[in-house]
Amino acid sequence: MAAEYYRLSKDKVAELFERARADYDVVAKTRDANGNLVYGRPVSFDDVAFVDEQPPMSAKAFALPQTEALVRYERENDKIRAEGPEAPTRDILIFGVNMCDATAFDIIDRVFRWDYLDDPYLGRRAQTTQFALACASIQQDCFCDRISYDEDGVDAVAYDLEGSYLIKVQTEKGRTLVERYKDLFATEDGDAESSIKAFKEKAGTAKKEPMLESAKPALEKAFEHADWEILASTCIGCGVCTYVCPTCHCFDIQDEGGSSRGRRLRVWDHCTGRTFTAMAAEQPRDRQYKRYRQRLLHKFWYYPERFGPLLCTGCGRCITHCPVKINIRELVEYFGGLKDTPPGGARHGK
């Protein structure tokens, strides 16, 4: 559908939030028991955190939970009862989701509806509406300004134009949201796209050359580059970057339980780990730097080769939360020929 534009006055946001809770399971940024930011279920509107900062965990778990039962079975005498995956009982509205998390869904969708239709994932996606809040500032590790992917596929986006929010609606699910609470939204008559452009310029999220897509031709020739080893050898092989990533979607299938009762589970997995794909034989990448290289090249070469966009929204979480602060943007620029010097200065290989 063609984009539609509306206005939402700031003093109507609390009402929108409360009324939406009657129709949706509303998820928003809030604080956990330790005071850390999470996508959770705020008790009241006052618990919603309106900040640009991203929660460490992205919103992907609402479509792809970390642990999900694909089959549950129980045997009683000679009777076997099996159940498929549980769908959410209510539609989910992710209220104020960061753009880097909202756009990620459209990117992962391409994998899950590619040759095999992944029903549990696609079912949850169909039940999820994203109501994104565009950032008014760019954080230290963010690089969404260097990735072409923009508002693609996001149901509705709010731009904070001081007095009120400009709402851009792009999908049927977004339109349903506005239709349901029509009295709260005003139609937008002005040149909305110009306002959005000015907003992004001011926020620092407007696109800046060179875009990271342009690194691909050089990355395709850099697989055997001598510097991978020295630059990626500080990688400790944990799962932080992949688990906090809004677009990483690899999983493992595990059986738990026994002959009378059990579950077949889908569980997140990470290519940076030592036991990734070890179920058949061995992890095919015998050194840590090769595992790190796999993650980077999957995002900036292999995935775009097959699906088009990068497998990255530039959220920068994998830099912020990396225990050793490996910087994927800097490494893409270096191995992708956009920069002469690697992060931390020239190193010499082993």
Binding site: Q140, I230, I319, K325, N327, E330, R347, H348, K350
Partner: peptide, 14 residues
Amino acid sequence: DYGHTFPAILAKGS
């Protein structure tokens, strides 16, 4: 670099 302090493994000539 890039506003962070982080571990690096340096060889001769780095």
